[in-house]
Computed example of a mutant assay.
Amino acid sequence: MASQSSSKIVVYAALVGNSLIAVTKFIAAGLTGSSAMLSEGVHSLVDTGNELLLLYGMHRAGKAPDHNHPFGYGRELYFWSFVVAVLIFALGSGVSLYEGIMHMLDPEPIESPMINYVVLGLSILFESGSWYVALRAFRKEKGKLGYIEAIKLSKDPTTFTVLVEDTVALLGLFLALGGVFAAQALDMPVLDGVASVMIGILLAMTALFLARESKNLLVGETALPQVQQAIEAAANADPAIRTVNGVVTSQMGAHQVIAAISAEFEDHLSTPEIEACIARVEAKVRESNADVVALFVKPQTPAMWEERRRQAVKKMQDEEAKAVS
């Protein structure tokens, strides 16, 4: 999992790159009248705002726990990541589609297309630098996992959000470049609008993908399997615990996990001995995984654990059946 400092480096790199690119694209769009270039300018402007929101979310997520939020503010990052996805859809995709359709209905020749070529070339160069920073950080985070699998399992949305944004930005730049070139070469200004519409569709698909991943984190996911396994192993290794019935976890933030262990203790143990065992398990878990901010241990027999699980499953099934009816 990427550290918070490396995630910030990725976001700052994207922020600087997108800010410079947005300004140059808007200047070029004003000078040439290119719809695709204007769409790309809006795209870069939205991306710039998105990086600011991600930085704000990281700042809020780092706040210390208080009375109203005893487990901290980690999920603030997930909320602002979801807002980023909504903005990509509403502003980036919406404006691109609108501009593209308007240009297709009333196409106008592109003035001074060479300006567009220069700006698009520089934008591809700058965007590639930001993309490489994000790619390098995400490759380090994902390990041997595939890219899509790593995104689905990731608990830190900042790195993969920037990587996806930068990837789509590069694709959008090539679409804009193709639209400008085709419109000039074929003397068909309508193709510039077609490129803008394609950029809008690309942004809409990206927004839906990011929104789904952010929503899953926001509503609550379990911790990574290796975290749960480490917690269970730490409990099983203590001689005072006869059986670990199960471990339940919840991801509260990019680097914040709460966990509950159901365990059966040896019968001869006194209350102080059980308390000492719990303290040992807590210390061992935090030693192996600093992301675990809270650990609860519930003494239960295996039969009671299974009965509680059965009741929970039945309640969930009843609620689903009631919702369908």
Score class of each variant (00 low, 15 high):
Met1Ser: 12
Met1Trp: 05
Gly17Asn: 08
Asn18Gly: 07
Val23Thr: 13
Lys25Ala: 14
Ser34Cys: 09
Leu38Cys: 04
Asp47Ala: 09
Glu51Trp: 00
Tyr56Ser: 00
Ala64Asn: 10
Asp66Tyr: 06
His67Tyr: 08
His69Gln: 02
Phe71Arg: 07
Phe79Arg: 02
Trp80Tyr: 14
Ser81Gly: 15
Val84Gln: 01
Ala85Asn: 00
Ile88Ala: 08
Ser96Ala: 14
Glu99Gly: 10
Met102Ala: 11
Pro107Met: 05
Pro113Ser: 07
Val118Thr: 09
Val118His: 03
Ser123Met: 02
Phe126Gln: 02
Ser128Leu: 14
Arg139Asp: 15
Lys140Gln: 12
Lys142Gln: 14
Gly143Asn: 10
Gly146Asn: 13
Ile148Ala: 13
Ala150Trp: 04
Pro157Trp: 07
Val164Glu: 03
Thr167Trp: 11
Val168Leu: 08
Gly172Thr: 07
Leu173Lys: 03
Phe174Thr: 09
Ala182Met: 06
Ala183Glu: 04
Asp192Val: 08
Asp192Gly: 09
Asp192Trp: 07
Ser196Tyr: 06
Ser196Arg: 14
Met198Asp: 03
Ile199Lys: 01
Leu202Gln: 10
Leu203Gln: 10
Met205Gly: 09
Leu210Gly: 07
Arg212Thr: 12
Arg212Trp: 13
Ser214Cys: 13
Ser214Ala: 15
Gly220Pro: 07
Thr222Cys: 07
Ala237Val: 08
Pro239Met: 03
Thr243Glu: 10
Asn245Thr: 06
Met252Asn: 06
Gln256Ala: 15
Ile258Tyr: 05
Ile258Arg: 09
Ser270Tyr: 06
Ile274Cys: 08
Ala283Pro: 05
Arg286Ala: 08
Ser288Cys: 02
Asp291Pro: 12
Val292Asn: 00
Phe296Ala: 12
Phe296Leu: 13
Pro302Ala: 13
Met316Thr: 07
Gln317Leu: 14
Lys322Thr: 11
Val324Ser: 13
Ser325Gln: 11
